[in-house]
Design a protein around this nucleic acid. Structure first.
Lengths: 373, 373
DNA sequence: TTGTAAGCGTTATCAG
DNA sequence: CTGATAACGCTTACAA
């Protein structure tokens, strides 16, 4: 972290070793036209005679001018053409989770069509509430994705800056346009499905309840102190059917993590559950793996329900008897698209466009009636 | 964090959607100081009396000023604090490949420490050679990652703009700082290892040779027309030991793709290879899976060597007899870090810092002598 | 320490 | 269709 070395103290900011780039004004001068005409020649927005245009382009080529500087353009236009995407994990972790990737894909698709690019920002909320890179970055709008941490401060800052904020599956936030999923209701449906199969001993494996990456049984206090909207809603959904279902918190969403938590779960002193509701497919795969390792058959001895409907089950189950996970399929990509659309709409001055999506229970072969005892 | 409850005039009239954001000048005026002082109060870079600072901050809070506008700041400073990362795939595909993710992670780590954020840009090279979003985005430097397409035009444009370019594993490009990997030499070593084991019938499964996502046997013409530096180099490495090894091109880097190509490979009329050199671990997993499906044991009937050394072998092999892939382990994360460092160094005016890394052959349990026949 | 002034490179406006 | 001119909001050398 060295100090940027503008040490030579020149009058202009960047008079370092780099050759000064010609400006549009210089091109105009060389072409013998006014700056405004040169500008029009490049932006294409406005009437320019064919002759003037070619002269400008020629002069540009001559001088090695690469087109208008985006920085100046964004100042002048008040727009940078960039949408910030905020995630609250290290990028490597975030990218490892198909949910984020698919959502991002939806965002990227819509953003790309609109000619805007994506600025990746790790959620910048230190304990101090610092909002660093997020506010120093030239973004026109921000999409908050997978928020396990308290984001209100960030939203507050962005609001003050008049930067539209879209929050995917966040708690109700003042000033952020929500893109919601029926997490609670969907989880309730999954639980009801298990209940109808006859299950009475149901456990839950939750996604992280906050940004601290803790792992283990979820105490009442921990649950009450939880912040992560999605995890809590999904948990509440199950609790609507099984009010006292024990819950285990995973420290992340990965197969390995699911395996660890699953191992603990099946090894616990408590009576073994006959069904486990897992808050993500990736975790569910790990839990299933742990079940096998513990000598349990799925679904004969224990049923497992996932969440997400990620399309990679084939590879993950390839050498197991399982063909398809029972899970709640959610429309990630569409969620991402909706978020991007909402963001773009807002920065064009259109009214907020909240969105809400439903998950569908897809019944695979990881659920069955509980074993006769 | 809350609005100061100055009872009299604090409430800003909420002027509909177009509430003009206050400027630093306005804040300075309200605080009774000069703009420059207000600027220093925010940037922290320069001497400001405690009293002035608090007055400025108070005025800012009063007016709902959220800090200096990054757009204006970047124009003035000639820097936006953003590094562009260019990938030549759809983001969803790119993120699905651990190689990209890990590289990106290395980039993000270094960039984050330097206070710069990452702008994700899909490689914009239409057949027309358009370079759209890449040049309109306010980036200080660009890192090209995983380039299967011809990137010269993009680099040319960026050069003209004085934007430093770092290319990871690209062919030698005028004006781009290279971050290289010993693809050819490493592949040669892997091939030599197989030769020493006694293999004579060796096939290659390649990564895409260009951006067209073709799949199938690699003809001499196709090979000659190939663009993707990495794939070609790795292929050449094997050819250094097995000059006429048949090659099959995969249409991407995924387990599923590996399985498809592997199935074709093992079903082909040609004599079955006793060893397969696969250009990525992800593909290799698929090839191994295909081998099992074809009734072949790995490594007894067929040896498989991968490339990359991605750290997820455990999950992928979890229900197979295989514990570890024989592969060439490359330092992705360090590559990403080096790329980011090079980019940052350049935009600070430092001389170019090319980098080159080595891959290590890690011998797992997917390779063995060929079956006695 | 603080104030003054001069841009940074564009684009929008409006008159010719 | 073209040209002069005024911002866009901020930073920073330099003077006070």
């Amino acid at each position: 972290m060295d100090e940027p070395a503008t040490a030579n103290g020149a009058a202009r900011p960047d008079t370092g070793s780099r050759a000064a780039r010609p400006t549009l004004a210089a091109v105009a001068r060389a072409a013998g036209v006014a700056p405004s005409t040169a500008s029009l020649a490049f932006s294409g927005a406005g009437p320019v005679s064919e002759e003037a245009r070619t002269r400008v382009l020629a002069a540009a080529a001559e001088l090695g001018y690469g087109g208008p500087d985006p920085r100046a353009r964004s100042l002048r236009r008040g727009r940078s053409g960039v949408i910030g995407v905020v995630m609250d994990e290290r990028l490597s972790d975030a990218f490892r989770d198909p949910v984020n990737v698919l959502t991002l894909d939806g965002i990227a698709e819509v953003a790309g069509e609109a000619g805007t690019s994506l600025l990746l920002v790790r959620s910048p909320l230190d304990d101090a509430g610092l909002v660093g890179p997020l506010v120093d970055a030239p973004v026109d709008a921000v999409v908050l994705i997978g928020c396990n941490v308290r984001i209100d401060p960030a939203v507050a800052v962005l609001r003050r800056r008049n930067i539209p904020v879209v929050a995917i599956e966040a708690d109700e936030i003042e000033g952020a346009v929500p893109v919601q999923l029926d997490n609670r209701e969907a989880s309730r449906r999954a639980a009801a499905f298990l209940r109808d199969l006859g299950h009475t001993a149901v456990a839950v494996v939750t996604l992280p309840l906050d940004g601290t990456h803790q792992r283990g049984p979820v105490s009442a206090e921990r649950e009450a102190a939880g912040i992560a909207h999605t995890s809590l809603e999904r948990l509440r959904g199950v609790r609507g059917v099984y009010p006292s279902a024990p819950a285990w918190e995973a420290a992340g969403s990965s197969v390995e993590e699911g395996r660890i938590v699953g191992a603990a779960l099946f090894a616990a002193d408590a009576p073994r559950p006959t069904a486990v509701v897992v808050q993500s497919d990736v975790l569910a795969v790990g839990v299933i793996s742990a079940a096998f390792d513990a000598g349990l058959r799925v679904p004969e001895d224990v049923s497992v329900v996932g969440f997400d409907g990620i399309p990679v089950d084939d590879s993950l189950f390839h050498r197991t008897p399982i063909r398809q996970l029972t899970t709640l399929v959610q429309p990630f990509v569409q969620k991402g698209q909706a978020a991007a659309r909402a963001a773009i709409a807002m920065l064009e001055g259109a009214p907020a466009q909240p969105a809400a999506f439903r998950s569908e229970l897809r019944i695979g072969d990881t659920t069955a009636p509980p074993p006769a005892r």
